[in-house]
Every structure is written in structure tokens, then in C-alpha cells.
Write a protein that binds this DNA or RNA. Structure first.
Lengths: 239, 239
DNA sequence: AATCTCTCTATGTCTAAACTTATTTTGCGT
DNA sequence: ACGCAAAATAAGTTTAGACATAGAGAGATT
């Protein structure tokens, strides 16, 4: 059916998904329309219902379809509005750009959680934490400045690590798995400290990331990352 | 086994996924470890292999597991590094904050694609496009300023729409489904025009979003969005 | 040692059939 | 007209069984 030249040894479910996607994008099936039910599509595509189900679930996750029991499957009125952001490890990011990675620690000491940090993590202020400030460089040029607070109770083995040699970001990613993460983007004018550490001028617009991670409700770490001027972070839609 | 009080009438595959997730987060299975194969887990959980497969695929998508044929399944060394960003419709965003939405068009005319736009979309410069500049307000206060280029060939019916009454963002979302989208975050100091339209001062740091969408390789639209000072955009990890 | 086979295994995928469950529809009683 | 209960339907989920396929590991060849 439907002259399909690039019909290779593709997984059947994916083939069905992309055919359905095509029909939606080409407006054969329009926003809000009800599409044939799984059984009918199974017959049309010569597949089992389970295979069709799998394909449609993918499209529903993408946001292209709305599915409800008994009511059937409809083309979503507000289609695809999701993008996936891959959180990079700084070192890999710098090295994959062909630059030499290095970093420098500007502070690393126990300190009670200030109000702002406690608020973000949902804990009481004054809780003992580790405060870490560091700059990451690519070929010796400042790449990003991170100001991090770590909850030592949530990360066993923290005290035995020497962050002068090991990258905190990386160590945490590998040793403190989390169940929930939050990333917030914003922009700020560089203050005196930002400007000094990133070797730029005061007032320069910087892309700021706030990240926080929890494991089963227990806060692990929160960090403010100031990126070098002009830095970009991109996200893509998956299909 | 393993006293599991909150074992409700949950879908079995999800129950398996969260149990495996728990074992990883609790370090029963550590980074790089090979975990039992599907057949063994199926026996342990009293489920069919297909069900275990489904559960493990979810965790692999999340980035918690690395799976390879014949080599088996291992706990990822660099776990979960993905976050999902939901792209909002401006009007909904403003209204859900309890503010009254309004917008104003500052330019709306056919214009050949300048170099910068052509480059982003991967087309030749000079292609005829529609250029649109608008500001969205919440309770009359500037919320974001968008500078958009639309490829009329990719969006049939464009010419019949009056963007003074209909929101471009919204109309496009509903009428120009896309197969690929890209979002890029950056920061910039407000220039004279940004400052005027957003009612702020020159030099103010602004969060900038560049978005572009394609349908089957054909460019639909690209837009530069300048958010009001202090604006934040957040993303979350899904589990 | 290095390289080329072959074999075997764990995951990838599909199927047919059954059961479950949310929700709509229908039809009954008032 | 109205409300309610029963029937019907479409998606959600699971299962056992089968075959496909990547790729690690063993063994043979150079």
C-alpha cells in the first residue's frame, strides 16, 4: 500500500508510528479528528494490535495524540510541545569542543545553608552543608562558574573526596544518583565577582542555570551556574 | 521478597521499573554493574519476559540503564542526564499566572530572509518570508518580545489569517505541526529596541530563546524571543 | 599476535489471545 | 425530562511463544 520506497527492515512499530505521524503532519488526519481504532489500524497495517498500541503510545508521549479509553484516539489540538534537554558534564562538553579542560576551586568549606539555598531545596536554614565555588576552563579561558551547595548527609563518601583533583559536577553525577532534578534558566547581569571569575566586564549578560537534585525527597545538591558570555544551550524534540 | 508495603494495583511493568530504579538509587546495583538478564528478572518478579523488557526499556530511555544485545544490561555510568522542557503557549502561560493577556503587533510584512535567518533554517538567503514582531503583555506589562520569520510556503492558509486578532505563536502551534523543533537558550544585554519594547533599560540582561521548526526538512518558522527581565524557564526530569 | 570465522546468548521485536478498566451509550424506570 | 444502571467499546496491560539480530567470546587460520 501507499508507495513507500524507503521501506527497509524497519521495526514495524516505528514504521506505523511514522506513517501515522506523516498523516497528521500532512493533515490527512486533522487536529481533533478521531482516528481509526487500534483493531482497524492493525488490520490496515497487517500487524498485531499490540504493535499498533506501542506505536500509538509513542505518539501520545510525543504529544501528537490524545488517547482515552473507550473514547478512542484523537489528534491532539495542541500538538508537540516538548523538547528534551540533555544535561552535559562540563568536562565532556569542553573536550568535545576540542579544548583542553581545567578547573580551579575558589572556595570549599563547610557552611550552614543560607536562606536562599534552604528555600530552593525545601529544608530548614542553617543546615550544615558544603559550599563549593569553582571555575571551569577550556584552553585556559573561563567557560563557566559554579557556586554549589552539597548536602553531605545525602552523599556518603563526600568527605573523602578531594575536589581539587576531581570535578564536583562529574563526581556527583557518578556517585549521587537522584530521583528528581530541576533545571531553571534565567539571565543576569554579571556582578563584580562573576565578572572577575569569568574575565568579563560587570553588567555583561550571562546565561544562568540553577539546578537542584533530590533523592527520594532528600536534597542532594543545588548549584548556580554562570555561563561564559555568549554561551548557548540547546534542546531538541525527539522524534 | 523484599518487604514491599506500597504494592498496590499498579501496572506490573511500572512496579518492576520502580523496584529496579530503587535498587539503583539505593546502590544495591552500582554504576557499571551488570544486572540479571530479562529471563531471570521475569522469574524473580513473576512476570513474562515481555513485561520485564518493557520496564527496562523505560529505564534505558531515562538514561539509568545501558542495554546491549548479547552484552546484557548494565547500570549506566553517567546516569540520568535528561530533562523535559515543555514549550508553553504564551497566552496560557500569562493567564495561568492570573494575569490578563494582550499583545501588540509592531511589524507584519513580507520580507526576503536575511542571512542570519536563512542560516538558522538551512535555506538560501533572500527567500520570501513573513516577518512579524510582537510584544505579549500580562496585565499590560510587557512579558515577552518576539521577532518571528515564517515561511508562507510551508503554512497554507497563512495569508488569510489576521495576526492582529490571533496570536501567531498559538496559531502556528495549532496549524503548523512540525516534525523537528530546536530550542536554544542564551542571554543578551537589551539593545535599544529590546529596552523600549520591554520597558526596561538598555544593557539589562535578558533571557533569549531561539526556536525553529521544520516539517519534513521544510522550514516553517524561526523566532527570537526576548523574555522580560528576571523571567525564568524551568525543566524537570520525568520519572 | 593478529585476524578471520563461527557459535551462542541476551536483547529486540512481533503475535495472538486473553483479561482489565475507564468511559460512553443505551435503555429502563420514575 | 431526569437519573441511574447495565451493556458495549476502545484503550491498557499482560502472557507465552516465536523468530531476528547484534555482538561478545571461542576457536581456527594466517
Amino acid at each position: 500500500m501507499t508507495a513507500n520506497p524507503p521501506a527497509q527492515t524497519w521495526p514495524k512499530a516505528q514504521a506505523i508510528a511514522s506513517e501515522v505521524r506523516r498523516r497528521i503532519l500532512d493533515r490527512e488526519w486533522r487536529q481533533g479528528d478521531r482516528i481509526p481504532d487500534e483493531a482497524d489500524l492493525a488490520v490496515e497495517f497487517g500487524a498485531a494490535r499490540a504493535t499498533v498500541n506501542k506505536a500509538l503510545q509513542v505518539l501520545a508521549d510525543e504529544g501528537l495524540l490524545d488517547r482515552r479509553r473507550r473514547a478512542g484516539t484523537r489528534v491532539a489540538v495542541d500538538p508537540v510541545r516538548k523538547a528534551t534537554l540533555t544535561i552535559p558534564i562540563v568536562r565532556e562538553q569542553i573536550e568535545s569542543a576540542g579544548m583542553a579542560y581545567s578547573h580551579r576551586i575558589f572556595a570549599h568549606r563547610p557552611s550552614p545553608a543560607p536562606e536562599s539555598v534552604a528555600g530552593k531545596l525545601g529544608i530548614g536554614p542553617g543546615m550544615p552543608m558544603i559550599h563549593l565555588r569553582a571555575v571551569h576552563y577550556g584552553d585556559g579561558i573561563p567557560f563557566q562558574y559554579e557556586d554549589r551547595w552539597i548536602n553531605p548527609k545525602a552523599v556518603p563518601g563526600m568527605d573523602r573526596v578531594d575536589f581539587r583533583h576531581v570535578n564536583a559536577n562529574e563526581w556527583l553525577v557518578r556517585n549521587a544518583p537522584y530521583s528528581r532534578a530541576e533545571v531553571v534558566f534565567s539571565a543576569a547581569n554579571a556582578d563584580v565577582r562573576d565578572a572577575r571569575l569569568l574575565q568579563t566586564r560587570r553588567g555583561q549578560a550571562l546565561l544562568i542555570l540553577h539546578r537542584a537534585t533530590w533523592n527520594e525527597g532528600q536534597p542532594i545538591t543545588t548549584v548556580r551556574i554562570a555561563c561564559k558570555p555568549g554561551h548557548e544551550i540547546s534542546a531538541n524534540s525527539q522524534p
